[in-house]
Design a protein around this nucleic acid. Sequence first.
DNA 1: GTGCGGATGAACT
DNA 2: GTTCATCCGCACT
Length: 188
Amino acid sequence: MKLPISFYRQENVLKLGKDLLGKFLFTKIDNKISAGMIIETESYGGIKDKACHAYNNLYTERTKVMYERGGVAYIYLCYGMHHLFNIVVNKKNIPEAILIRALKPFIGTDVMKERNPSKNFLNGPGSLCKSLQITKKLNGENLLGSKIWIEDRGVKIKDKNILKLKRIGIDYAKEDALLPWRFKIKKI
DNA sequence: GTGCGGATGAACT
DNA sequence: GTTCATCCGCACT
């Protein structure tokens, strides 16, 4: 079943980063469904997090989506070539989001490989967006809609099987770059 | 209008 | 571990 809106409105972005592990991200683009299980996330903690685009309450055309109520998609272009998909959480005007970094194939593997022939087609935030055809067109899209959504299929990840690691590619955030806000399912 | 740096990926060693 | 392709968005003038 689709995650209810109340899930996204919770106020603990770190708990949500962990809770999203084992959930399933779906897209339906051009009438083709593809999906994967979320196995790695990173939490971005609002105006006090130097790694967050909304640090210091920065409000621009790009970041405004993060100020929406939880339950919408924040998608932007990085390095001029990669789309990155984030889940906006918490209340309106609290700009917190969770970046999806990796998925495990579930549905529509052939379609995904066709869109992204690379070996790591769901490993890495830019790669998985290419495979699921997530583009800026979906920026601000409601995650309970019919184009992009997240389902709970009863998979439970125990806390002892979750690795807590520092986030990647944000060295400019100085001390915040060391925060263990990346969550990953331990390989069994 | 202009300058500059980035929440990356792929292909290397 | 390294390099580099490649261009949007932010902050300024």
